[in-house]
Structures are given as structure tokens and as C-alpha cells.
Design a binder for these strands. Structure first.
Lengths: 335, 335
DNA sequence: ATAGGTTGTCGAAGCGCTTCGACTCGGACT
DNA sequence: AGTCCGAGTCGAAGCGCTTCGACAACCTAT
């Protein structure tokens, strides 16, 4: 293992000079710098992470806490994680992967040990028990998702309320008067993950403004659960012609079931999904959808965090505006 | 930030004693140990990760390199990552998330800097350029996947060759004589990710032994790609009654298309999928499938790694035996 | 009773880096 | 000519931990 001292000796300078070449915190003459850089290359030197962390009290690591459960949006989580990792690298940070399993203890452990300089939390619940801990530390953090109380927190999320409103608006404008919402799994609502409820708020609010009837039903993913849910919906509101689907693993089953019942899409019923674009374009019908901007959220989160670590950047709630793309699954309500 | 020294002072012992209480590397009297533990609790002490890494040259971090691409098995990747993270924690390790993006450089950086004690590589290609680097270091590593040359490597993977054989066998036993394989996306074959080719080997080998006709077609995910592929297959081999599907995002489209053509499952055609159980049970038909044991793979990988780090454990290729679960998508070939 | 072994504790020496203060040297300013 | 300043470099002091050797106290065996 090559050390700073060896590089220094090889280049004929002192250790501190090498350090300053690396960090750029003091000016170094061009000739010296080049000599040092040459030595670094020749010896294949990599600074020791532990020593660096100890001396500078900076680990250059960002902790990312992902949900353990897989009842929800797995591809979105993955995409966010990858975006976080790649963006972090462009700023010189690595990413530590924590699962929600440890809960608040993980927060304590990471902040206490200086393992990471900052944290990103996913799957934030409305009244998340990790938040008080984060507020009680000076370690910067960013939430992906929106808790009930955002004071002192930086949050990044899709504006799900606006998303709900947008979906409803789209269907209402097409003339649909009876709209059903296929929600997330019941468990998601029970644990008060905000996004599902905010979406619903947006849907409800706009439906009242526009005089549209709305029926919301949570739904586990998969064919069987969807079949049951759909039957109930059509029983209660036979005139339903518009569907908004939030649970991405209910999309394909819904389409299959509708088709099976002889309801044509979009001639008889319209479907709007809230899902990643990939899902929308790979489905058996190209879906009109509001995209979940996973990459953008991951990137945003990291960039806010880096800004905070650099002393720039303030607490802020960033709600990404939803964009609805019209594809082949929605059309005018039949007269 | 509480330090070891403060704990020592609070407990009225020396720093080294506290360290030994923590590590258990020397015997400590019960009374002293309890006093120290009490102080640790009262002060809320967490050992500083950097200092610990520096002094012990152990970071207690395992690096996990996941593929950047999302053209394949995203949920599987995610499940593996989560299994790795949780298993690692039970052994006192944290997980550093690296994306394939940096390629071999990431390996150099991590081993060179002592950021991690060991690595797990996913999405290993047959002739992976990261392998020489791994061989040239004394840092333990485990591959999830199987390269062409496994000498000096520890690998964990599903036995895809046996998986292929098993799928074929199942269909052949049911009387199917013309079988089509819906493979992974062409890109997967082009980059020589071994598992797809090994599956094919297994299928081909057994088909010859059993005298069954086999047609293999790579296929991108999604409805449209599947439609084209299926049309070609049925054009070339109209008598095809058995399907083996490896690309999980082609499963649902295939089912929909077959249904649409009036082919009943399993009365007219049988379908066997290679996919996680969740996909198999949530599909519109409960699928006969060979499960991809993502969790098991992640867990295995970590446990081998930990064994190596503890000086136990040797290089070894672990191929997990496939298990085929018969569900509702396969049945006897119609006479 | 004494040599020998255990057991429990301590002090001190690093691990490899960052960073502060100090120093030298040349040029710019009085 | 003398003073001041900035640029460029160095030495040394830690950062908080682990670990080695030393040592005291006690407990066996002889």
C-alpha cells in the first residue's frame, strides 16, 4: 500500500506539499505540482480513506437509506439509488447503502460514527421517527418524499397533489364524469407514506371543483387483487369510464381485465397511470401517464446535499412539477 | 462527538481497556466491562469509523458493484442489493454502493484506498475486465454470476444450465415437441453476460437428448417487441406449443398475445418462466416457473465474503440448484 | 514457600492523513 | 535602501482508534 510519505519522498518534497497538491488548498508551483502528480501516477497512489476521514473529519460518503419493503415501486427505488450513486461520484462522494430495517438506529450509528457526511432518506413517512434525530444533528440531510412537518428539512419529491389534480383534469376534460382511482396497496396508506395521500388529495380537490364523481380503492399488486378490486368498483359505479392507476403493478392486470370484459381502451374506458415512462411505454397499451422522475429526484437530492456540505444551500422543499404525457390509453368519453 | 478517551475517563479506566471491551480481544473483568458499557450508554458513544479504519486497517465495509443498466432484471438486482445490505449488517458490515459506470477504476479506487474490505460484483460478464484486477489484489471478493474463467474466484449464481435443462425437461415430459425460447434482450447476449448463454446451453443440450425441437429468439422487453418476436416464431414453427421465457418483462406481453390469438394457457400452449416467484404469482396466469433466488444469492455472497475476511473460507463456485414450481401455465400437450 | 502461569489493566507507539504556523525568497512599494 | 507582502514550501502536531509489550496481582503446582 503506497502512502503519502512515499509519494513525497519519490517526488522529493514534503508530505504536506503532496497533500496540498491533492487538495488544492494552498498554491503550489507548476513544476512541483507536476512532479508530484507524476509520482502519484508512477506509484499508483490512492489516499487512504480512513486516514483522510480521521484527519479531516470528512468521509466523503453519503448515506442512502432505502426502504426494505418491496411492496412498492421497486424500479423507481432502484433508479433513484442509481442516480444518487452516479451523481454522488461526480462530486467525489461515495454512497453507503442502508436499509430501513435498522430504522432510527441507523441514523444514530451513521451520524455518531462519522461514517457518512450526510444522509438521503427515502420512503419517508408522514410522521417519520427518524426526523427528530436528523433535526438534532448538524449533519446535512435530504428527504425524498414529504413528511407532515418539513421545518428545518430539505425535501425533494414529485408534486403528487398536482399530479393527482392533473390526472383528474385530463380525464375530466375528455368528458369522463365517473372516475375510479386504483391506489397503492393498503399497507402503504396504513403506514402513512405521504405521496399516496397527497395524490388522493389532489384528485379529490379537483374532482369537486370540476364536478366529477371519484371512487378511490387501494389495491395490492397482481392480477387477482386487481380482479377483485375492479369487480367492486364496477359494481358500485357501473358508469365508470375513467381510471387513474397509482400502483404500477396493477396496471397490466387492469388492462387485461378491461379487455377481457370487452371494454376497449380508449374507446370505452380511459386509463391514466402514475408510473415511470418505461412502464408506460412498455405496457400492452401505450399509457397516458404522469412520469415519476426518479433520476431527477436522485440527482436533485445529491446536489442539494453537496451544496449544503459546501456551506451553500439552504433548507427547502422542492416539488417537481408533474408532466402528463398523452398516449394511447385515454380518449374522449363515449357519448 | 464523544471519543474513546472520554468514555475511558468517565468509566475511570484507560482508553485501551475501553477498546478491549469493545473488541473483546482481551479478557476484561465483569465489573469493569459493565462499568465501561454503562459509560458508553450514558454518553451515547459511537466509535469513529475513520479512526477505527486507520488503526485497524479494516473499514468494515463491503463494496457492492451493481450494473448501471436497467435493461435486465431490475427487481432481482434490487432484491440482491437489499439482501446483501441486511446480511452484511448482521455481520457488522456496511455496504458501499458502486455502479458499474466507473468499471475497473472503481475496483482500483476501492482497493487502493482501503475504502472497503471486500467486494461483491454483480452482472459479471464472461470475460470481465475487472477480474484481473481482483486477482491481483489480496482483497477478498465474490462474484454474483459466472465468468468464463473462475480460477481463483468465488462465485455465486443460480445454475442456469440446469435451469434450462429443467425447463425443457418439464415441457418435454408433458409431451411438447416444439419449444420456443424467449430470450433476454439482444444486448444481453452481445455483452456476453454468461447466464443467458448458459441457460440456452442447458435448454439445447436437453432438447437434443430428448429429441425436442428448439427455437431460440432474443427479445427486448415490452409488448411491441414481444409481438414481433412471437409472430416470427409462429411463422417459422407454427406447431410450437411450449414456451420458455427468460426475459421477465416479456412474460405478460406474451400471455396477452397468446390469449389474443385464441390460444388457451395451458390447454393449447404451455409457458414456463425463469423469474422471481413474485412475478410468477402476480401474473395474469399463475406461472409455472423456475425461481431466481435473489435473496439467497445475496446472502450467500456476503457470507462467503465474511468467511474469507475471517480467514475461513476458500475459493469456490456455488451454483444454486434450480427449483421448478408447477403452476397454472403448463400442462400436457394437446394430442 | 517459590517458581510459573493466568488474568486484568495500563501506557505508548503508531496508522496515514490534514492543517496550522513558520520560514524563505523574490518582487513591489515607500 | 528598507519594509511589506504573497507565493511556495516544510515541520510538527494532532485526528481517535488499535495493539503490543509490560506489569501487578493473584492463583495454582511443586
Amino acid at each position: 500500500m503506497v502512502t503519502l510519505a512515499e509519494v513525497a519522498q519519490h517526488a522529493g518534497v514534503s508530505a504536506s506539499t503532496v497533500s496540498y497538491v491533492l487538495s488544492g488548498k494552498r498554491s503550489i508551483s507548476t513544476t512541483t505540482r507536476q512532479r508530484v502528480e507524476q509520482s502519484i501516477r508512477e506509484l499508483g497512489y490512492h489516499p487512504n480513506a480512513g486516514a483522510r476521514a480521521l484527519a479531516s473529519s470528512r468521509s466523503n460518503i453519503i448515506a442512502l437509506m432505502i426502504p426494505l419493503r418491496t411492496d412498492m415501486y421497486v424500479p423507481v427505488m432502484m433508479e433513484i439509488a442509481i442516480a444518487v450513486a452516479t451523481t454522488a461520484r461526480t462530486h467525489g462522494y461515495d454512497v453507503l447503502l442502508l436499509t430501513g430495517e435498522e430504522g432510527p438506529d441507523a441514523v444514530r450509528r451513521v451520524t455518531g460514527s462519522g461514517l457518512a457526511d450526510a444522509m438521503i432518506l427515502m420512503d419517508v413517512e408522514l410522521d417519520d421517527e427518524r426526523l427528530p434525530l436528523l433535526r438534532g444533528t448538524d449533519q446535512p440531510s435530504v428527504l425524498i418524499g414529504l413528511p407532515a412537518d418539513t421545518t428545518g428539512m430539505t425535501c425533494v419529491d414529485l408534486d403528487f397533489r398536482a399530479t393527482g389534480a392533473l390526472c383528474l383534469e385530463h380525464l375530466a376534460m375528455l368528458g369522463h364524469r365517473d372516475i375510479a382511482v386504483i391506489g397503492e396497496a393498503p399497507a402503504v396508506y396504513e403506514r402513512h407514506t405521504g405521496f399516496a395521500e397527497r395524490t388522493l388529495d389532489g384528485l379529490r380537490g379537483r374532482s369537486q371543483e370540476l364536478g366529477v364523481r371519484l371512487l378511490h380503492r387501494p389495491c395490492d399488486g397482481g392480477y387477482d387483487a386487481m380482479a377483485v378490486t375492479l369487480a367492486r368498483i364496477l359494481d358500485e359505479r357501473p358508469g365508470t369510464t375513467g381510471f387513474v392507476v397509482q400502483n404500477e403493478s396493477a396496471v397490466e392486470p387492469l388492462l387485461a381485465l378491461l379487455r377481457q370484459q370487452g371494454r376497449a381502451i380508449p374507446e370505452d374506458v380511459s386509463v391514466v397511470a402514475i408510473c415511470p415512462d418505461q412502464v408506460a411505454t412498455q405496457a400492452s397499451v401505450r399509457l397516458t401517464s404522469v412520469a415519476i422522475p426518479a433520476q431527477e429526484m436522485g440527482r436533485h437530492a445529491v446536489e442539494h446535499l453537496v451544496a449544503k456540505l459546501d456551506g451553500r444551500g439552504k433548507d427547502e422543499v422542492v416539488l417537481i412539477a408533474p408532466e402528463l404525457t398523452v398516449r394511447a390509453s385515454s380518449g374522449p368519453a363515449s357519448a
